[in-house]
Every structure is written in structure tokens, then in C-alpha cells.
């Protein structure tokens, strides 16, 4: 069950790479947050109450509800209904994503010969998700998609940190939570600002500053 959740988490990325609709991206972020939440309920049920509460807050509150809601609000308020064009055809995007999955699974498979490796499925999928988030940032033109790519990278690192059984102290976790929240919030505000200044939300507009 645990593995199924993790692989489903990976599949959301596959779906994102194949579609070009912003609503789908947001839905996938929501699904990712829910999957991480379920994963926590499955694996962390014997953790301390404060830690568990914090993790639930982070997955369900932040990743599943707050961020998708905020991104949707930004999309609505900025009238970004057009598709998120990619700079390469979706077919290649899917192929690349699949290759990244294969590569990450190979890395995870190879890492089993090292001491102290995390569980291979966690490790492989989280590498794949992080790399795919970067791929989305690299290949999509819309600024808002870059924010989503950033969230995907964050989700991937969160999965990786779940794989490492070690817990950070509570204060550090709180700080991390706050940082990510403020980062997304600021990025969202800036999307609105950029929209009102440039009247276009394309990353190609941001090329005035150069040498």
C-alpha cells in the first residue's frame, strides 16, 4: 500500500508532463499533497504528537490545501487561462520523464550496495520527482508553471526526507515550513505584480537585465 502511494505520487508527475492545462497542474499538486498526507498516516503513526501534527500541517494544510488554493486564486485573478506551452512537444516531454524515472530507479538500485541507503522506492521516486520538477522549470514558459515546478521539487525533497528516518528538531521543521510557505506566497504575489506590469506572464519577457 505504501509503495502504491509512492508510485502513484510518481505517476502524477508523468501526468503533468503529458498535459498542458494549468488546472491539471494544480490538481496534481493537490493529489501529491494528499498522497504525502496518506503516506504520513501510514508510516508515521507511532511518532510523537507534536511531530505528527506538524507533518500533517505541512502535507495536508500546506501542500494539499493552501498552496493549490493560492495558485488557483492567482490563476483566476490574473486570467491565465491559456495553456502552459512547453518549449518541446509533449511526446518528448513524456519520453524524457520516463527516462528520468528509469535513471532514478537505476540510481536507487545502484545505491543499495552502499551502507545506510534509504528505502529504494522512496529514494528512486523522490530523485525522479526532483529531476522532473527541474525539467518542468526548464521547459515551460509560463512564470506560474515555474512556481509549480518549484513546489514539485519541494514535494520531492519532502518525500526524500521521509525516507530518511531521522527527524529534525521541531524548531527546524517549523522554520522549514514557514520558509516554504513564505516563498510560495512571495512568488505568487510577484506573479500578480509581473502580470500588472508586463501584461504577459511569459518567462521570455524577463530578459531586460543582461550584460
Amino acid at each position: 500500500m505504501e509503495y502504491a502511494l509512492i508510485v502513484l505520487f510518481g505517476l502524477t508527475i508523468l501526468y503533468i508532463s503529458a498535459t498542458s492545462r494549468l488546472e491539471v497542474y494544480i490538481n496534481c499538486l493537490f493529489i501529491q499533497g494528499m498522497l504525502l498526507f496518506l503516506l504520513i498516516l501510514l508510516t508515521m503513526h507511532d511518532a510523537d504528537i507534536p511531530v505528527l501534527l506538524l507533518l500533517i500541517l505541512e502535507t495536508l494544510g500546506l501542500k494539499a490545501i493552501l498552496v493549490p488554493w493560492f495558485l488557483r486564486y492567482i490563476i483566476r485573478s490574473n486570467h491565465i487561462y491559456r495553456e502552459a506551452e512547453a518549449s518541446l512537444p509533449h511526446f518528448y516531454s513524456v519520453v524524457l520523464t520516463t527516462m528520468i524515472f528509469i535513471f532514478s530507479f537505476f540510481v536507487a538500485w545502484w545505491s543499495t550496495r552502499l551502507p545506510d541507503t534509504p528505502e529504494t522506492v522512496y529514494f528512486g521516486v523522490s530523485i525522479a520527482v526532483v529531476l522532473n520538477g527541474l525539467l518542468i522549470i526548464l521547459t515551460r514558459h509560463k512564470i506560474i508553471t515555474h512556481v509549480m515546478g518549484f513546489m514539485i521539487v519541494e514535494n520531492g525533497t519532502f518525500l526524500l526526507s521521509l525516507a530518511v528516518a531521522r527527524e529534525m528538531p521541531l524548531i527546524v521543521n517549523l522554520g522549514i515550513l514557514l520558509d516554504i510557505f513564505v516563498a510560495v506566497f512571495l512568488l505568487g504575489i510577484m506573479v500578480t505584480r509581473i502580470r500588472s506590469t508586463f501584461e504577459e506572464l511569459d518567462i521570455d519577457m524577463l530578459t531586460t537585465l543582461k550584460d
Binding site: Y3, V94, I102, G124
Partner: peptide
């Protein structure tokens, strides 16, 4: 890209089985 999805699912299945 839709049809290729089957390949992607297959690869993920294959490698997860090997990994697990």
C-alpha cells in the same frame, strides 16, 4: 504521448518490481 503512457507505466512497474 497517450500511447507512450503505456510504456511509461510498464517501465515504472518493471523497475519498482525489481527495486522492491
Amino acid at each position: 504521448q497517450f500511447v507512450y503512457f503505456m510504456n511509461s507505466l510498464g517501465y515504472i512497474l518493471l523497475f519498482s518490481i525489481i527495486l522492491i
